[in-house]
Amino acid sequence: MGSIGKGVLYGKTWQPLLQSVRYNRRVNIQKPRPPHYIRARLEMLAKPIFPEPIEKLLPLSAKCKLKEEEEIRNFRIDNPYENLLAKELLQLYNDSRLIAICQKNPMIAEDQFNMIIRFKRNKMVIKYDGKHTTKLALKGTKFEPVLDLFTVHQCAIFCKEPNVKALLTNLKKTPQLILLAAIVDGYYANVNQIKEYARLEDISHARAQLVSVLNSAAQSIVSGLNHHQTALVSGLDQYLNLKEGDSNISESKEKENEPQSSSANTSETSTT
């Protein structure tokens, strides 16, 4: 009995053999075979009925979520460090006479380092600030129209002197930077206007030419006013010279006549 119980308890149980059969055709997944009509009736009776969502009953203006998404996207926590960067950026805008806005395309780190060195040699500074920092710095100032240019990847080049020629030469050596616009001495200029400004001569040379033109006009006015006086003086000088010449001729003739008269007197005395 004990051996029989052990065989029943610890022996192997019978397991049925399972084998899948497709009946020589593939299962149609896209258009399955409709179920039995009794099963279909039970499924229709057991199908739950959910109430319609409230959003379908609201007007279209209330369904729009763009405003909420924009508010969530524009919500930013007040950052003191970002405020400090904005103040420094605004100070840089106010102190610079030349500000160039460029589109920055991808470049390797070595080219970017060489580009910074080239601009640094010409006393120019490149700033890569975010759109929100730039907006925080320029909102409500005279530089607010520049915000339309900052869309994706832009940078600003600052210089305390309007050295436009050096800017264009450095940009030619850096094709990854595309010039969009610039501010020269407070005036907004596009690319064509900047190129025309670069063709102009130095301001000191232009000032010298202006001074020479003004001096020539003043000199012509002075000479015109003094023309009659100088003509009168020259005429009087010529008249005096003629008078002195006539007096000298008469004196020379008198001197020539004096010896002849003296010789005549001597001859008369000798005859007497």
Rank of each mutant, 00 (worst) to 15 (best):
M1V: 09
M1E: 10
I4S: 08
G7F: 04
L9R: 08
Q15W: 06
L18I: 09
L18R: 05
Q19W: 01
Q19E: 12
S20V: 13
V21Y: 06
N24Y: 06
V27L: 12
I29Y: 04
Q30D: 04
Q30F: 02
Q30Y: 01
R33F: 04
P34T: 02
P35T: 05
H36T: 07
I38A: 03
A40L: 12
L45Y: 02
A46N: 07
A46K: 08
K47G: 02
I49N: 09
I49S: 10
F50V: 12
E52T: 13
I54W: 04
E55M: 06
P59T: 04
S61P: 05
A62V: 14
K65V: 14
E69H: 09
E69Q: 10
E70F: 06
R73P: 02
N74V: 09
F75N: 07
I77P: 01
N79W: 03
P80G: 08
N83L: 11
L92I: 05
Y93E: 08
D95H: 06
I99K: 00
K104H: 11
N105G: 11
F113V: 10
N114K: 13
R121A: 10
I126H: 01
K127I: 03
K127R: 14
T133W: 02
A137P: 00
L138K: 00
L138P: 00
K139A: 10
T141D: 02
K142T: 10
K142R: 02
E144F: 02
L147P: 00
L149V: 06
F150W: 13
A156G: 01
I157N: 01
F158P: 00
K160G: 06
V164W: 00
K165H: 11
T169I: 13
T169F: 12
L171E: 03
L171Y: 04
L171W: 01
K172V: 08
K173G: 10
T174V: 12
P175F: 10
L180D: 01
D185W: 07
G186P: 03
N190L: 12
N190S: 14
V191K: 06
V191T: 14
V191A: 04
I194M: 15
A198H: 08
R199L: 15
R199V: 11
L200Q: 15
D202C: 08
S204H: 15
L210Q: 15
N215K: 15
S216A: 15
S220R: 15
S223R: 09
G224W: 06
L225D: 13
N226Y: 07
H227L: 15
H227Y: 15
T230L: 11
L232M: 14
V233K: 13
S234P: 01
Y239N: 07
E244A: 11
S247I: 12
I249S: 01
S252A: 14
E256T: 03
E258F: 03
S262G: 06
N265Y: 04
S270L: 12
T271K: 03
